[in-house]
Design a protein around this nucleic acid. Structure first.
Lengths: 218, 218
DNA sequence: ACTTAGAGATTTGTACACAATAAAAAGCCG
DNA sequence: CGGCTTTTTATTGTGTACAAATCTCTAAGT
């Protein structure tokens, strides 16, 4: 059992609040205010801010405090463009490196997700979707890739609410894209796995970005 | 003119010392010791440590302080595998997105590097090599990619000494690989640019890793 | 002689006070 | 009245003291 420090606990809390949307992009975090809120001094708050900064959830400038990152369409496009390639790479590596057991597992997850599609259970599908993607990240056997992707997805998650919304329309499409992806990985087809994942993330991102553009007409 | 805070200055110093090899991988950084060294209190040191952590140059555990990251062969392989794909992607995007001026500029840098090859000026070649790569990163028009690559290269730079050593042997090979790469970007050939860069980084990494394996026989 | 328990020393974590910087408000001059 | 300078205020940066945790070295016990 590891004894978490106060800074760590506060980091976890703030991190969750930011990701859940309780603390919104662009919002400033004031040291004293949060210190009062948690009933501690400013010191561990500052440490927690640094952890948030490391996670890429906030940005900080000297003498100006920290604010939750605010991503515009261009930045989101950049991040999705990178994510698309990195996840596609993971898929290719997974097609090469996964054990037989791992391949069976993603096949099972995919089968389970079929039920979620039929019952239109978006939450359940999202959960299985996450499991499949995570399994493929691990299947790549590359920690650097996993960490980079995890960080990107964490930052992108601040803008996932519309994604869940959009997801309802893309439920069946997503399922079919997964089908192609899982099939390729099980067959050990590097190139098809790469293309299938690249296509899948591309479609996902297009949906999200289109939605954001429609929401925020400049 | 921005007024740098003490934490920032100390971060810059420590960062430079770590990258230059003055502070070695695995070495522990003690707050009080460094505070005395710089003639300040522990507080800004702790802030500087957080910045180092964000850069990925050190790792920290609760109540155990921070230590300079120590990468084994597997981790280096992972990082190079990721770097290879990311840089290749940048090359592809640059082939599509660079302006005519930018294409001329990398051509010019490449031409200059030819002289460095003939005079066997490794330092000069390394400098131009960096410029070419940086230009290609910028040519991708993708900030996320640029930052991710920059961070990876920074961490890898702790182990670049043998690379510079090895580089002497790879001087001409590197130049020829660059030639193919630059040619592809100027011609706007996405796929050739991708393959050329992927091949180039792959060769570079193999050299480095082979060297490290020969140095550290398990 | 080796292991283990514990006291002391060392190091990191937190609280609080003060200094420095930047933002906001008030005052001054045209 | 408007633009600029000065003063005030609020927020972050730094120093210092103390608490908590870890490490180390000693000593007792098997």
């Amino acid at each position: 059992m590891s004894t978490l420090t106060i800074s760590d606990k506060i980091y976890n809390q703030l991190s969750a609040q930011i990701i859940s949307g309780e603390i919104k992009p662009g919002q400033k975090l004031e040291e004293q205010e949060i210190a009062n809120q948690f009933g501690v001094s400013r010191t561990p708050i500052r440490e927690a801010f640094r952890l948030l900064h490391t996670s890429g959830l906030v940005e900080s400038k000297a003498h100006k405090g920290v604010t939750v990152i605010e991503l515009d369409i261009d930045q989101l496009s950049d991040m999705y463009e990178a994510l698309q390639e990195l996840e596609a790479l993971c898929a290719r590596l997974s097609a090469e490196r996964m054990t037989a057991v791992e391949r069976k597992q993603i096949q099972r997850m995919h089968q389970l997700s079929e039920e979620a599609v039929h019952s239109e259970d978006v939450e359940r599908f999202a959960e299985l979707n996450n499991q499949i993607h995570t399994a493929i990240h691990q299947g790549s056997r590359n920690k650097t890739l996993q960490e980079t992707i995890a960080k990107l997805r964490k930052r992108l998650s601040l803008y996932r609410q519309p994604w869940l919304f959009e997801k309802r329309n893309r439920l069946e499409a997503s399922y079919r894209e997964h089908a192609e992806l899982v099939e390729a990985i099980i067959a050990g087809d590097r190139d098809q796995a790469f293309d299938a994942m690249r296509n899948h993330i591309s479609n996902t991102s297009l949906g999200t970005i289109d939605y954001l553009i429609s929401q925020k007409p400049l």
